[in-house]
């Protein structure tokens, strides 16, 4: 469904991705693991069209999307929940959700997804008139995910949804991601929390300073000595 081929991305003169290949099949949860600065966010931002690759291609189905504008990429069915949540803090929860559905024309579809999102995150329904900036960190992460889902995406890109959350919240967020996936949304999950991510995902890639160094089934990666040493604390 999503295929990244030989992707190079630069920030100015600095090359951040040195030829990345990865693939996500329809229905999967795929995780990208890696330490700080490995290039995980760069990869997701490039898929979403906020960064342009220096070389390489990105296919979504049969469509080469790396030269498309970000808003057209969302329209095709790729939504992203960015690192650090980036909710619109001076807008209400409801306005944030409406913006998530910006590309969806069909009002009854929007209503349907909104009901689903409120079912996933009942807390947001209670707070729909509250300013997003006044939510707690965990609630903001819920809002960010909910906002991404409002685009009614085929694939959801999640950039470190567990960042800064208490373990119990991480658990609940991850089980919600599973539920989202089971209702038909493909998931590409970037994480530093390797243990939880590999438990959830079908497959994984390990990124180190701009290169994929390992990939395979999540179960295989969990027991890989190199992964255990670097990401699972031995």
């Amino acid at each position: 469904m999503l295929k990244v081929e030989n992707l190079y991305v630069n920030y100015g003169n600095v090359e951040a991705l040195h030829g990345i290949n990865l693939e996500v099949q329809e229905g999967e949860i795929v995780t990208i693991l890696g330490a700080n600065g490995a290039g995980k966010s760069t990869t997701l931002l490039t898929i979403s069209g906020l960064l342009k690759p220096a070389r390489g291609q990105i296919f979504f189905g049969d469509i080469e999307i790396s030269k498309l504008e970000a808003h057209d990429i969302v329209k095709l069915g790729i939504a992203q929940v960015p690192e650090g949540r980036r909710v619109f803090s001076t807008l209400t929860v409801q306005e944030n959700l409406n913006l998530g559905a910006f590309t969806v024309e069909n009002d009854s579809k929007i209503k349907q997804v909104l009901d689903w999102v409120f079912h996933l995150f009942p807390r947001l329904k209670e707070r729909r008139q509250q300013l997003a900036g006044t939510l707690s960190g965990g609630e903001q992460q819920m809002l960010a995910i909910a906002r991404g889902l409002m685009a009614n995406p085929k694939i959801l890109l999640l950039d470190e949804p567990s960042l800064g959350l208490a373990p119990i919240l991480v658990k609940s967020i991850f089980s919600t991601i599973r539920e989202i996936n089971q209702s038909g949304v493909t998931v590409l999950l970037v994480e530093q929390n390797a243990r939880s991510a590999l438990k959830l995902a079908h497959r994984g890639y390990v990124l180190e300073v701009g290169r994929i160094v390992l990939s395979g089934d999540a179960k295989k990666l969990v027991s890989d000595p190199a992964v255990r040493k670097a990401y699972l604390g031995g």
Binding site: G49, A70, H71, V74, A79, R86
Partner: peptide
């Protein structure tokens, strides 16, 4: 209003 708060996030919403 969204673009005024965070242009990048606005683009991720599909806003041109």
């Amino acid at each position: 209003r969204a673009a005024a708060i965070d242009q990048g996030a606005a683009r991720l919403m599909g806003i041109n």
